[in-house]
Amino acid sequence: MASQVTFSASAPRRYRINLERLRHFAPLYLMVLPTVVMLLIFFYYPAINGFLTSFHYVDVRGWRWVGLDNYERLFSDARLGQSFKNLFFLAGFNVLVVTTMPLIVAALIFRVKSTVAQFWWRIVFVIPIVVPAVAIILVWRWMYAADGGLNILLNLIGLGDLTRSWLGDRDVVMWALAFTNFPWVAGINFLIYYAGLQEISSEILDAAVVDGATSFRRFRSIELPLLRPQMRLLVLLTLIYWMRSFELPMIMTNGGPGYASMVPGLRMFYAINRDFDLGYGSAIGTILFLIVLVITLVQIRLTRTRDDVV
């Protein structure tokens, strides 16, 4: 190192200073290095590789360049079209859910006077998340089974005519999937709304009470507008969640009956695991990635404009 510095003695002064600066900051680069290497190997490299793979046909003999073939197949595949429809249905439905149910419960808990009671209500709606998501899905699978919980309940209240195999009927299977986790409160979503409510200054709320605002008016005119950032965040998280997750249809129905509840992610999974069609799977992954990217960019855009206005 020292010899290098003497060697560059004739070089411009700034260059020498930069070298010294870099050496001074070396520990900082070392601190960042492991993370950067891990991200390169397990995120950046696969992301780029996936994009490239989507233009190839891959099998045991190797890779063959096929241009846009995978994408052409993808867009002309009626079943895949159906699976994108299913995906947008689930995502859209859950956006509706996430902007209402957990918000209502959070606002209700916020209205309980005693802070101790508030704490315990919060615990009540958080506790179910200690059950792993797949276990909850399996319970709901039982609920929808022909001899399962939902039909038992329907028989019990005299609506036996409505009983059916909820997951075996292509007309209702998507609604069954959407209604999993009813009433959609348990978990993080309502905690986020609740945290947002706690940030609202008590002066504003007190002033509203003094002015004689009803509880509902207080919700509509104060809390709802101030919770818009939380709402926007949850919509984003929900959309991205459904673009990337498919364990619900995977465990409930395997995409069936037929392709009635198939989603693109599950097709991608089967491309690896059943069809050995890695190029096609990569093409689906690339499309999902683009959708996530667009959603994220729209979100950033919306957040910006809001900041400009306020």
Binding site: L22, G285, T296
Partner: peptide, 28 residues
């Protein structure tokens, strides 16, 4: 030097949900 670039390099990964790179990650 390079702090900002590194910061965005690290955070950009948030836009890559692991399952959209399922196939290439599996190949890796």
């Amino acid at each position: 030097p390079g702090r900002k670039v590194l910061f965005y390099f690290v955070l950009a990964v948030l836009a890559i949900p692991p399952t959209v790179i399922l196939v290439p990650l599996f190949m890796l």
